[in-house]
Amino acid sequence: MVTITYDGTFEGWLTVVFEVYEYKFADVEICKKELFQPNVFNKHRESQFDQQKFTRVWKGLAAKLSTSALSALYKTFLSEEKGIENVLLSYVQYTLNSKQSIERDYSNATVLKVAQTAKRVYRESHRMEAFVRFQLTADNLYYAICQPDFNVLPLIQKHFKERYADQRWLIYDSSRNYGIYYNLSVVENVVMSFDEQTNKGKNIEIITDEKEELYQRLWQQYFASVNIAARKNMKLHIQHMPKRYWKFLPEKHAF
């Protein structure tokens, strides 16, 4: 058994896939560099990202899979689930071994697993599109902090860029410690030093705009007023809005 470590990026993982074919490894385990624990029984190989290898695998896959299946692969990767790299490797092997596309062979455990994981990641990205709440700072930046279950910021940046094309915004994933920032022309990744306790960045201006509190209060009022007490159904409420998201939702903080 060979353990291959890589840099943790999607491109890095595709490089590993190339090397599995290149060196004809039969029995491999892929693992992120920072999670690697040496094991006396396994050989270890460290893989370096290689643009050419990455492109060749990606093109090979694109020839056999539809765009939606390719995007499902990427989403599944973003789930960061333990061992998901190995599931994805066997998906790739199954794809390259078959003449026709296998993306809809749901009776195959690997294909079903990828379809279902991609669905869960999609759902989380859709939730983030819904539950991100911006606050306006005094220097006209709309900023939001979130802690999504999966690494979904790469999936939602297009949505926010198209929607808020005329405002500067920052969405920060405080559990993965990076954010996406839109400066009115492009979206870029940013890293800030971050205070876990207060959930506020040390180097962002946290002086909020004077109107910010008013609009949060109005939103809380609105949220309370549209509720129909005679139809109370907390189970459904929590099912749709799980408690782990409440921390960042102003409407769930009584005024």
């Binding site: 509720n227 749709h240 409407e251």
Partner: peptide, 12 residues
């Protein structure tokens, strides 16, 4: 997109 859900479980 449903941005929130009230306590009666309806979407906002």
């Amino acid at each position: 997109i449903c941005h929130a859900y009230t306590e009666d479980g309806r979407c906002v």
